[in-house]
Nucleic acid binder design. Structure first.
Lengths: 238, 238
DNA sequence: CATCGCCTTTGGTATGACCAAACCTACCTT
DNA sequence: AAGGTAGGTTTGGTCATACCAAAGGCGATG
């Protein structure tokens, strides 16, 4: 049965199994949430050794197609945008340790989020503005509690990523916050500081309500740049 | 995200080896380009079985920290932004097959690239404008040859991603073009069509030279949206 | 009916063996 | 001496088997 692999220059038998399982997942034969057959079943299904099966499953797991917890059956996960970014996450962790890595990632975020607020200012529907207002209200209510404030802060920005209704964007936001969270936790927090950030958020919302993309972008840039100044000392010099 | 599993302690011996090797790579003890010690050496270095060593190496490979060709010694690759996006690439391939996947990715590109041309209009240095002009000239020269035109087209856009001097952005561009290339190849090409695209590129450059971000963004959006209309029929209906 | 404990299943690891490709070295040819 | 070549050695890929420990199912028990 391994002869199927012999046709391709695939010297690795595991790749053949990966493709088989990939196809079974894509075709729905292995629906999302189901768990993979036991390794010992796959052995005689594909006529390969357990070594190969295990390597194949490991590859699927690393690509986010299955989720394998230590002593459990791997669970099929139809690939989502999250999975793609989670796959990238491993390397990103290293990149952030390199000099300037955090800054580069943060700058990228500013660039993208700037475009988002412009988009919001031009395209946001009533419901979007309402969602922003709601998030802002919760943000204000959380000013005394720094932990809760951080959560509502993230939530406010998250709304911006949802407005274009492109599923890639919320996933990118989740990835950004996850990757940067470690550093942001070190940032000194206080109700006064929270209030400043809340006011910036309010400025952004007001500019969006005014349908003024330039003002919205400016408010956002000033907000994010200020936050950067506040945490930069955590990793690098001047 | 899926890091919920990260809460649990590593019951896997392989993960320990992964961390060891990761550290050796990050510390430079295993410099970029060097190859990993033979599996049989790692066995007694870490006192584990070959099974574990092999699984560990496979994990490193899937994270892009080492590059393992079938019958060769794995080569250490210090992680770069490319590696991160390459890791995501496997899943993205599946996403693009889903309905609307290509559109979502392309919209994200438009959003980001719109921000880039705005940035360019406001911040581009003389050298950047010169690079754009050079890329544009090559683009024009390639109008009769559709293959070469495609290459110079990509190169022109690439310059936009280089202007902010943030290494993440060129990598993102490479990823975008790689992921979308498959579909773009199906687009009908012709010198007339090439000329239209060249003119759009020229509009973008002119707007940047005029330091007019709104015009630059408008030109880019119109350019990319037109391209989309041209290829949409390839995957989905109206 | 809920609970507890045993037994089976199943993933994680360890050995040891074999093959084929890649690598290296020493020898031979020119 | 330079170049190429044959043979042995290294090394990754695969297989088979065995054992362990945790997870899950099943039945006995209170």
């Amino acid at each position: 049965m391994t002869d199927a692999a012999a046709l391709r220059p695939d010297t690795r038998a595991a790749d053949a199994v990966v493709r088989e399982l990939e196809a079974r997942i894509a075709s729905g034969a292995l629906p999302d949430g189901a768990h993979l057959p036991p390794e010992r079943d796959l052995i005689d299904t594909y006529g390969v050794s357990r070594t190969v099966v295990r390597e194949a499953v490991a590859r699927l797991a690393s690509r986010g197609l299955v989720e394998s917890r230590p002593r459990h059956r791997p669970v099929v996960r139809r690939p989502g945008v999250d999975a793609a970014l989670a796959a990238a996450g491993g390397v990103v962790g290293h990149l952030l340790r390199e000099s300037g890595g955090v800054k580069n990632l943060y700058d990228t975020r500013i660039l993208l989020e700037g475009a988002l607020v412009r988009h919001a200012a031009l395209q946001a529907r009533k419901a979007d503005v309402a969602a922003l207002a709601r998030a802002l209200a919760e943000n204000e209510a959380a000013i005394p509690d720094s932990d809760r404030f951080y959560a509502t802060d993230v939530a406010f920005h998250a709304v911006l990523y949802e407005i274009p209704r492109n599923p890639i964007l919320p996933a990118v936001h989740k990835a950004f916050t996850a990757w940067l969270a470690e550093h942001w936790r070190k940032m000194p927090r206080s109700p006064e500081r929270n209030r400043v950030n809340f006011l910036r958020h309010r400025d952004i919302l007001l500019a969006i309500q005014d349908r003024d993309p330039d003002a919205a972008e400016a408010a956002l840039a000033s907000h994010l740049n200020a936050a950067w100044e506040y945490v930069r000392g955590t990793f690098e010099g001047p």
